[in-house]
Design a protein around this nucleic acid. Structure first.
Lengths: 269, 269
DNA sequence: ATGGCTTGGTTCATATATTGAACCTATGGT
DNA sequence: ACCATAGGTTCAATATATGAACCAAGCCAT
């Protein structure tokens, strides 16, 4: 590990719970020598990445990151990362991939990508996703803020016979989504379309959107489902990372149990 | 210069004009060896501070900065830095210091700090500053967006006999502010109050607000003016830096010519 | 095609910059 | 007065960074 990497790594120990860290404390959490840590903090301070609270002598993030973040936002729009991941996802699954973002209580379509593999394809022709009837909407309800449930209940339009129609229906679905880390919408918005979505998070740590696959229901098999879920995990991690966020540990844990299933099948074969 | 510092310094070469930089280009602008630069970029990439555009192989700012910037915003509110600088400014000048922020076309008071040195003090008892009559407002017009002039012309309230009353009055004042890097309001809002303001900038590079001194006019002398301007420069640099911005070069240049005046006096004495 | 130009990326001996135990000083609590 | 902990400093030992030279790939005009 290079010296520069070690210095940069110190920054990852700052968090919302622990926004100011003293030298000794930093030594402990970083597991490094005091002199080394001190010099690294000096280097970070010289470049504006940290600064010392003049009162407490504790270190905290510096102003340099503000400017860099602004530049990042300008140079790499969110849509680009989403589109790149959606493209890979569509390629790998042979189905339509799309990404949605949550703004207030509305789930907007950010981008989508159709796979040329099959003649029939799911087409995303809406700009806002109903909360209660789509995988992306349900994902937002499961991992977004609480106000979404109220909004959803105000508009329980029945699109198909499978569209959830009650609060208890939604609560059951949401519990399942939170347990598995995936939202599924089995022909609840359009018949013949099966949706599976995974959540995305931004730099604030909050739910930011979903990456989803809309699959022609007649093609949906157990094998395709496995491909979709494992590819969704990859896409969700990539987009979340690009947006400056991280997947919450409980969700990673839920995904990890899914990942091991194929391995179990391998050992029994 | 430590290795970590050298690596961090590479990040400063990214800008809005040049958001993606290739290895060779980075070597040239950083003036360092290719192997060294490459390894530094590798360290930055490993920590998420830069990433490679997969198409062009060029490096650009990475997602890590987004998260850090959010954390910085949460841990260090703008007001704190402003208040610290205002306090120093009030202490050094013996007059009332205050900081304003521009939001839309309105100039809001962010904080102020009175000096206990004199019995009479200027008191900032307004929450929004008139654009045409105060140093902070004129500063916004000189360095902020163009729409401010229209807004100012819609409300040319005459507070004192010295309040500017025409577009040409304002244009003359603004030209002077742009040339000197300071905005002055000589009893144009309240009689007996002389205001001097310096501009502040944020991480977007745009005008963000002003730091100002409100001085009791009867105490205003050439010597005090020199103290105020030199202290204002220090305060403006500190706040701007803390907000993630930089003072534009033309303004620094204007300030530099002022800085040399006292030196000229010294050499002749 | 060919040769020259540039690009991103890699190697390895050299020596420079990093390391960490021990030390210093100040402060707050008992 | 004492101990514990804090931030900060020193210096010999050595691990780590360095850069000239090198490689492979892409581009472009001949």
């Amino acid at each position: 590990m290079s010296s520069a990497t070690k210095a940069l790594t110190l920054l990852s120990h700052f968090s919302a719970d622990c926004p100011e860290i003293g030298l000794s404390h930093m030594c402990r959490v970083a597991g490094r020598d005091k002199a080394t840590t001190y010099r690294h903090l000096q280097a970070l301070e010289a470049t504006g990445f940290v600064e010392q609270n003049p009162l407490t002598k504790q270190y905290r993030l510096g102003p340099a990151v503000l400017h860099l973040a602004h530049l990042r936002e300008v140079t790499v729009p969110r849509k680009d990362a989403a589109l790149a991941a959606a493209s890979t996802l569509a390629e790998a699954t042979g189905e339509t991939a799309h990404v949605s973002v949550l703004s207030g209580t509305t789930v907007y379509a950010l981008c989508d990508c159709l796979s040329p593999r099959h003649g029939t394809r799911a087409v995303i022709d809406i700009t806002t996703f109903p909360l209660h009837a789509t995988a992306s909407g349900l994902c937002a309800m499961a991992f977004g803020h609480d106000a979404l449930m109220e909004t959803a209940l105000e508009n329980l339009t029945g699109f198909t016979s499978a569209t959830p129609q009650s609060k208890s229906d939604l609560q059951t679905l949401i519990a399942s989504i939170r347990a598995t880390g995936f939202a599924c919408a089995d022909q609840s918005y359009e018949s013949e379309i099966q949706g599976i979505a995974a959540p995305l998070f931004d730099q604030t740590g909050r739910y930011a959107g979903a990456v989803a696959v809309a699959c022609v229901a007649s093609r949906f098999t157990r094998a395709l489902e496995q491909t979709i879920t494992s590819e969704l995990i990859i896409a969700a991690r990539a987009i979340t990372r690009s947006w400056g966020g991280t997947i919450p540990t409980p969700i990673e844990a839920a995904w990890a149990t899914l990942d091991t299933n194929p391995q179990e099948l391998d050992t029994t074969s």
